[in-house]
Every structure is written in C-alpha cells, then in structure tokens.
C-alpha cells in the first residue's frame, strides 16, 4: 500500500488538483483529488459552474471517500502531512487504510454498480 503512487504524498498545495490514476475496466478515466474538509461545497459549486457555463452533458461521477476514514488515518495523516513526521505517520495511515480496506472495496464496487445501472438506464 505504501508503494502505491501518490499514497501519503500530497501536501496542502496539491489539494484540488486531479491526479490521474488510470483507466477502469470499462474504459473510464479514474482520478483522485484532495478536498480537505470542503468536498461538499466545492463539488457543488463546480457542478453549478459547469451547468451555468452550459458545458453540456458531462459524464463525471464524484465519489466521496471521507466516509471510510478512521481515527488511525486521521492521526497518521496529521503526523505525516501536517507535522512532517512521515516515519511515524505513514505506517499509521497504512494501518488505518488496511483496517478500512473492506469498506473502500465496498465503496468502489457500489460506485461501479451505480455507473453500470446509469449506463443501462441511459441506453
């Protein structure tokens, strides 16, 4: 997990920038992005901006991953990213992520199901 690209590597200055992670099985582009605690208003504002700018049909699925965060990830993240104590924080974040792993997998599977269902309805 620690060897994953971008794992525990972002600073505050990187938040808001899309990080390309790769392509999914159905050919969709997958990105990750950090929002600190402002994910809800920022996503809502950007959606409204695109609608106001008549950007047309934009096929973007926003997935909030904050719901799977646990205390170990929070403490580890603060130690590693905020205080620069990577040697202490990173293993904690990795441990927390390992504990939350099933929840993360469930979230991804639920998202895939949602996209599939939406595509079927759209056809």
């Amino acid at each position: 997990m620690i060897g994953l690209p971008f794992f525990d590597s972002q600073d505050a200055a990187d938040h808001g920038f899309l990080q390309y992670m790769g392509k999914s099985n159905d050919g969709s582009l997958v990105f990750s992005v950090g929002f600190e605690t402002a994910s809800t208003p920022v996503i809502k504002a950007v959606k409204n901006l695109l609608a106001l700018g008549k950007a047309g049909a934009v096929n973007v699925t926003y997935v909030e991953t904050r719901e799977v965060i646990n205390i170990l990830m929070i403490i580890g993240g603060i130690l590693s990213r905020l205080l620069g104590l990577t040697f202490l924080g990173r293993p904690l974040v990795a441990w927390g992520t390992q504990l939350a792993y099933k929840k993360i997998v469930a979230l991804v599977e639920a998202t895939e199901r949602k996209i599939k269902l939406r595509e079927q309805r759209g056809q």
Partner: peptide, 25 residues
C-alpha cells in the same frame, strides 16, 4: 458563492476539471 474552507481548492479543481473535460466554460 460560499465554498467553505475550499477557497484555494475550488479554482484549482474547477480549472483541472474543465481542462480534462475540455469543457468550453
């Protein structure tokens, strides 16, 4: 609009997303 604590994040994300989507906004 109010964007909470995301005042720095909002323009970055909006720029990135419009660029990736090639949305002419």
């Amino acid at each position: 609009v109010g964007v909470g604590s995301g005042s720095k994040i909002f323009p970055r994300f909006a720029d990135c997303l419009t660029e990736k989507l090639q949305a002419n906004v």
